[in-house]
Amino acid sequence: MLEINLSTLGWIVVVLGLVVVLGLAFYAGRLLGRLKQQNQRRDKALEKRNENLYESIVTIAKAMDQGQCPLSEGALRLVVLLDLRVESQQAAYAKRYPALHDMYERIKHMPTHEARKQYPKGEIRKMDLEREGYEQELEDVILKDIRQLLKDFG
């Protein structure tokens, strides 16, 4: 009788073990499915974000090329937008468009929007003259970068 009970008990343990393993396998499968969905949603969101960045970059670059946007303002905006792109580290935009980044580095310390209003008018005019001087100095090379950017993003 003791031998039958041990044999039966062994089968019960094996069956319970299988139930636990199957339950864990099912749970792991569900988690993997959720992870796959989450990754797909993330990839779609990144793709959408890059599309929006692409549109903004091309619009600003065209406006700069057509003289509708000051070169300094466009450079500030483009450098930030390019750095926000997913592949920005691999693309090495600073090396591909050095004049844009040169302008950015020269004027990034200058206040914009609301921060600008905190400065006296004389100081704002001084910064504007400095910025306009950089625009004149770098105009040809910035436009060269812009045209290359438009080719790259076209």
Rank of each mutant, 00 (worst) to 15 (best):
residue 2 L to H: 13
residue 2 L to F: 12
residue 4 I to C: 04
residue 6 L to Q: 11
residue 7 S to A: 13
residue 7 S to F: 10
residue 7 S to V: 09
residue 8 T to P: 00
residue 14 V to D: 09
residue 14 V to N: 05
residue 15 V to I: 15
residue 16 L to N: 08
residue 16 L to K: 04
residue 17 G to A: 08
residue 18 L to R: 03
residue 20 V to W: 12
residue 20 V to C: 06
residue 21 V to K: 07
residue 21 V to C: 06
residue 22 L to A: 13
residue 29 G to P: 03
residue 30 R to L: 08
residue 30 R to F: 11
residue 30 R to P: 03
residue 31 L to S: 09
residue 32 L to N: 15
residue 33 G to A: 02
residue 36 K to D: 14
residue 37 Q to S: 14
residue 39 N to S: 08
residue 41 R to S: 07
residue 41 R to K: 13
residue 41 R to P: 00
residue 41 R to N: 08
residue 41 R to W: 05
residue 44 K to S: 05
residue 44 K to I: 00
residue 44 K to A: 10
residue 45 A to E: 12
residue 46 L to K: 07
residue 46 L to M: 10
residue 48 K to D: 13
residue 49 R to T: 11
residue 49 R to P: 02
residue 49 R to K: 14
residue 50 N to Q: 07
residue 51 E to M: 10
residue 51 E to W: 10
residue 52 N to C: 06
residue 53 L to F: 07
residue 54 Y to R: 15
residue 54 Y to Q: 12
residue 56 S to P: 09
residue 57 I to D: 09
residue 58 V to K: 11
residue 59 T to A: 15
residue 59 T to R: 14
residue 59 T to P: 00
residue 60 I to E: 03
residue 60 I to D: 05
residue 60 I to A: 10
residue 61 A to D: 05
residue 61 A to S: 14
residue 64 M to P: 00
residue 66 Q to H: 10
residue 68 Q to V: 01
residue 70 P to K: 04
residue 71 L to Y: 01
residue 72 S to W: 12
residue 74 G to C: 05
residue 75 A to I: 00
residue 76 L to P: 00
residue 76 L to T: 01
residue 78 L to M: 03
residue 79 V to F: 06
residue 82 L to H: 08
residue 83 D to W: 01
residue 84 L to N: 12
residue 85 R to G: 10
residue 85 R to Q: 15
residue 86 V to C: 05
residue 89 Q to I: 09
residue 89 Q to Y: 08
residue 89 Q to S: 11
residue 90 Q to N: 12
residue 92 A to P: 00
residue 94 A to I: 05
residue 95 K to L: 14
residue 98 P to R: 14
residue 98 P to S: 14
residue 100 L to N: 03
residue 102 D to V: 02
residue 102 D to S: 12
residue 105 E to T: 01
residue 106 R to G: 04
residue 107 I to N: 03
residue 107 I to K: 08
residue 109 H to D: 11
residue 111 P to K: 15
residue 111 P to Y: 08
residue 112 T to G: 05
residue 114 E to S: 14
residue 114 E to V: 14
residue 115 A to H: 07
residue 116 R to E: 10
residue 117 K to T: 07
residue 118 Q to L: 14
residue 119 Y to I: 04
residue 120 P to W: 03
residue 120 P to A: 15
residue 120 P to T: 10
residue 121 K to L: 07
residue 122 G to Y: 09
residue 124 I to V: 15
residue 125 R to M: 11
residue 127 M to K: 15
residue 127 M to Y: 12
residue 128 D to T: 04
residue 129 L to R: 14
residue 130 E to P: 04
residue 131 R to M: 11
residue 132 E to R: 14
residue 133 G to F: 10
residue 135 E to K: 00
residue 135 E to P: 00
residue 136 Q to C: 02
residue 138 L to V: 00
residue 138 L to Y: 08
residue 138 L to S: 01
residue 142 I to M: 06
residue 143 L to H: 09
residue 145 D to Q: 11
residue 148 Q to K: 13
residue 151 K to V: 13
residue 151 K to I: 13
residue 153 F to N: 08
residue 153 F to S: 05
